[in-house]
């Protein structure tokens, strides 16, 4: 009863269509950024290394290397400020959390490609 009601309240904040991507994919995340009065769209490209949480709290972590420095951003999947996620390259993985990539540098960061295109799309 309790969870049902809370889920019903939460469900209004959820996105109807969730972009499809997998762990290990290289994705383009478009997010809305507000600078004072102005609004613009910023794209963050990197590898999805984790996806956690449930309902409105579901988030995914995107990692990329900028100037030899690892940068990770955690995006709330259902946030209105996350405008879209597009998988541009799939990665072959054997686990759900790719935290081992944090210890790797250079070429070792790149994952083998799983398939050339996303055949499944929701």
């Amino acid at each position: 009863m309790k969870t049902e009601i809370l889920d019903a309240v939460e469900s209004k904040s959820l996105k109807e269509k969730i972009p499809y991507f997998e762990i290990g994919d290289v994705v383009d995340v478009r997010c809305r950024i507000r600078e004072g009065e102005k609004e613009r769209t910023q794209t963050f490209t990197g590898t999805v290394i984790a996806r956690k949480g449930r309902g409105v709290n579901e988030t995914f972590t995107v990692r990329r290397i900028v100037n030899n420095e690892g940068v990770e951003r955690i995006f709330p999947l259902h946030s209105p400020n996350v405008l879209g996620v597009r998988a541009i390259r799939s990665g072959k993985t054997r686990r759900a959390k790719l935290y081992y990539l944090r210890e790797r540098t250079g070429k070792a960061v790149k994952l083998a490609q799983r398939h050339s295109t996303h055949t499944v799309s929701k």
């Binding site: 309790k2 939460e10 409105v56 259902h78 209105p80």
Partner: peptide
């Protein structure tokens, strides 16, 4: 009191809320 959760407002901010039946 039913419990607490979070919802997004128009500004795209996550707001902590309490649900009351």
């Amino acid at each position: 009191k039913v419990g607490m959760t979070q919802v997004y407002n128009e500004a795209g901010e996550l707001v902590p809320v309490t649900v009351i039946l």
